[in-house]
Design a protein around this nucleic acid. Structure first.
Lengths: 134, 134
DNA sequence: TCAACGTTTCACGAGTAGTTGAAGGATGGA
DNA sequence: TCCATCCTTCAACTACTCGTGAAACGTTGA
């Protein structure tokens, strides 16, 4: 992944609403979510949401497709992964101490990947909302 | 890692010079580098460098210590790792497709970590230069 | 063809980050 | 004590980003 792309991905992610957007879209996988539903879920105005979505799309972190009247947005997992990978490999040179911080969960998941169990894990769209620490 | 901390880490990293700074400091480990040497290496003016360094320090990505006349800056590997970890785990929920993008190098390195071949967390005075196998 | 709906674009004001150059501390040597 | 060195902070300016509301656009169904 090129450096400029990574920089725009990072600055796209460095915003509360856009981080929320990614968190919302990742578990939904390719199925994605209509812009209007996203706006309702996150409580954003239509114009603001559109702005953030285009920033994320420009940065290669999400993609869009039109389905009748709606525009469906979904996470671009390879784009997101590419940015993280850059940080990890090109920027931190896979420093063991950095990787150690990425914790057991990633280790676990990578192990699954290594074993070929990498099918997109699209969690149930309903309960999908991850709900994390907040 | 808290969300606000991650956001400030991301926006700190979303800048060319600061990404260069991290890339420069990570391989040097705890040994770090004096501000003046950094300025010469990266070709930055003293004031601009100081500005960027304090942004990174504020974000918990580097730390500083004074050694006689010089101020030595070094990467805070746990801070950097924490931010990446947040993206990977809390934001992408360790999605296999994202992890797959992090590639073989990380998998390799994580494997080393899993086998205990990693530098002890945080404090190994001379683990400084990681010398990644690449 | 036209109205309704979902979404994007535009214009504007406010706030924040970036850059530069000069001034201001802290430190160590003469 | 004085001066040089190293680094940080400050002030001023520019440029960018964010948020809001209104207008415009594209699609659908009557």
């Amino acid at each position: 992944m090129e450096r400029s792309k990574v920089l725009s991905a990072l600055s796209a992610l460095a915003h509360e609403s856009r981080l929320d957007l990614v968190r919302l879209l990742v578990p939904r996988g390719d199925e994605g979510m209509a812009a209007g539903d996203i706006a309702r879920t996150l409580g954003l105005s239509a114009s603001r949401l559109s702005f953030h979505l285009s920033a994320l799309e420009q940065a290669g972190l999400i993609r869009s497709r039109r389905v009748s009247r709606n525009v469906i947005y979904s996470a671009d997992l390879s784009g997101i992964g590419g940015a993280i990978s850059y940080l990890l490999a090109d920027c931190c040179m896979d420093h063991p101490q950095v990787l150690a911080c990425c914790g057991a969960s990633a280790r676990h998941a990578l192990h699954r990947v290594a074993e070929g169990d990498a099918a997109p894990r699209i969690t149930d769209p309903e309960s999908g909302t991850p709900d994390p620490d907040r």
